[in-house]
């Protein structure tokens, strides 16, 4: 138990970083109602872009900005595939993800792993200093929540929400739903890449595979946050915060099960099953309710 508690700062820091990623997933999955698989590639794009630029001598802040923009570009590609090529959103995301695999390798110069030592470069966070890592992560998360709260309260933000909620209604009210989907995908992937850039600094390297399964972790964070905090957190800013908490809880649970002896290679299976079950719960609840009301109707008759 003591080892578990003393090991908490690590998963908290990691959880916050993935929580930022989860807020990106929230934009597509919850606001636009699109499951965007681009993020598995974008996470790595953000990471390798940052590492290569910083190793090349660039200022970390600027490198993070460029990593963010690289993610935005990836989201733009998916958005164009989806709206201008008429490709279903999931497939559009998979295509971009595959493109990004090659792109990421180009960025790293065909290396699958690029190191970034905190001793040699002036990184804003690292796992060597967990207190600082948590603080930096929290500042970023708070700033992103503030910006998103503002954006989704604007006219444009409202029109994005309408697009995800009811496309017929949105169009009837003069909203260009295609453009809005693209904007949402761009912002979402920008955030995911930013999270990748933070993660690369935190772990001291970027890896071509660092985003594999990212969508599942992002979804897990969103869903865990909703299930555990949804009843209390009604406000939009708090819902985003719930996704960050979801990320933290996810990593704490992962740390716990690893300490209990779970094979690390089985982690992805576990994560995917957790997401499947949590996505299934509302569906089963609905089924049960329907069956119950059916029975009541029969009893009345």
């Amino acid at each position: 138990m003591l080892t578990f508690i003393s090991s908490l700062p690590g998963p908290i820091a990691q959880g916050i970083i993935w929580g930022i990623m989860a807020m990106g997933v929230y934009i597509t999955f919850r606001i636009l109602d699109i499951a965007d698989l681009t993020v598995d590639g974008t996470m790595g794009t953000g990471g390798v872009t940052l590492v290569v630029l910083v190793a090349g001598g660039m200022n970390v802040g600027l490198a993070m900005l460029i990593a963010f923009l690289a993610g935005c570009a990836a989201g733009l590609v998916t958005g164009l595939f989806h709206t201008k090529f008429g490709i279903p959103a999931i497939l559009a995301g998979i295509l971009t993800q595959l493109i990004l695999y090659s792109v990421n390798l180009r960025i790293t110069g065909q290396r699958s792993n690029v190191p970034l030592s905190v001793d040699r470069y002036n990184l804003i966070l690292s796992l060597r200093n967990l207190g600082r890592a948590i603080l930096v992560g929290a500042i970023f998360a708070a700033a992103i929540i503030a910006v998103m709260y503002w954006f989704f309260g604007t006219e444009l933000g409202h029109s994005l929400r309408a697009t995800g909620c009811n496309m017929n209604m949105a169009r009837a009210n003069g909203i260009n739903t295609d453009t809005n989907k693209i904007i949402g995908l761009v912002l979402s992937n920008g955030l995911v890449a930013l999270s990748g850039a933070l993660l690369a600094q935190y772990q001291g390297f970027a890896d071509i595979n660092m985003g594999r399964g990212a969508i599942v972790i992002g979804l897990a964070a969103v869903i865990i946050g909703e299930v555990l905090l949804g009843k209390v957190f009604k406000n939009f800013a708090l819902k985003l915060l719930a996704a960050v908490f979801g990320g933290i809880i996810y990593y704490i649970v992962i740390t716990l099960v690893l300490q209990m002896g779970l094979n690390a290679n089985d982690l992805k299976m576990l994560s995917a099953l957790v997401v499947a079950v949590f996505l299934g719960i509302p569906y089963w609840q609905k089924k049960l309710r329907e069956r119950k009301s059916n029975r009541e109707v029969k009893a009345d008759a």
Binding site: E155, A162, C165, N173, G174
Partner: peptide, 30 residues
């Protein structure tokens, strides 16, 4: 009746969407 409004949004939010029909939607408070 489900088709003309956005179910997850508030009454005032729906109305503000309709009020801006045909106008550019920018970064002003909605």
């Amino acid at each position: 009746p489900m088709m003309g409004t956005a179910a997850d949004m508030w009454i005032e939010e729906n109305m503000s969407l309709a009020l801006r029909r045909g106008k550019a939607r920018g970064l002003k408070w909605a």
